[in-house]
Amino acid sequence: MLARIANNLFWMGRYIERAEHTARFTNVNYFSSLDAPNKLSRDRQFVLQSIYEMVGEEDEQDEVLVEQDVLYNIALNPDKHYSILKCITYARENANSSRDLISNDCYETINKFYHSVINYPKEYFVTRGLHDFTSLIMHQSTILKGKIRGTMLHDEVYALIKLGINIERATQVTHILQIKYNAAEQVTLSKPKHLKKSYEWTTLLKCVDSFDINRRVYRKPPTQSTVIEFLMLNPKSPRTVLYCLNQMQLHIAMLDPLKVHEKGTALFLIGKMRCEYEYKTVEDIQDDVKEFIAHTFSSLVELSDKIEDEYFYH
């Protein structure tokens, strides 16, 4: 497996996953704000800023955001590196360069996906198409991931894509957790006691498509503690940090299983982090949730850098 191609496969996985999270986050935040119980959560500026924060766009302080501009930038602006259109373009470019390695079915799906995004009418999107477009992205990326799993040989090519998908998902989940935690703090600024039961926890779960399964696990409305426990430490839900760490370990081990015994390799470090999270309890972290989220985020960034150094730059 060529190092350059491995890099492309890894990033193909990351971009597919990123597009999906951006789409869902935008969708959920926008639509749930329309009838949110408190004033700040209903505030359009607050929602748009939160969407910008998700993709890392730095808006000026006190700048009044224009809804149509924000939505266009997030979804279809080819000049914004974070736009969904750009993510899908990068994913497809990466697929192009490794076309000989991925299945025909998989390539055809990503190619069709790309064309459906590229040709999506801008005017329609910014006025009426937000729900339709974001649903399309979530739907198509799910199909694409199904094709990856269902039509490709589960070898190192597959392992690299899965590695990308899972590290991106863990990172996005953590990042969304961070944004929503801050939002919940702001919303309940005057009544800090309400923080633990804030409406933002529900939105947060919806942002990572985990609201209904969370209900099945806890059988009561989400609170700060159950949400953190669930999204960080639940091993069974496919959208949690621990689940992604398990997947990362499984797939990186397919590249070179012997590295697990070598101190300091990416495989070793993933295993170490996974063990830490496997035996952590929500009681361990609830005194400083913010610090723990920040620690998780920076650990994932370090892991990604380590993988890139170790496998892609020879």
Binding site: M1, L2, A3, R4, I5, A6, E156, L255, D256, Y311, F312, H314
Partner: peptide
């Protein structure tokens, strides 16, 4: 492969792989 994936050492050609 592309040109940048190959390297020549002691008149032998190699490709740069993940291992």
């Amino acid at each position: 492969v592309e040109g940048r994936d190959l390297v020549v050492e002691n008149d032998f050609v190699y490709m740069k792989t993940i291992s």
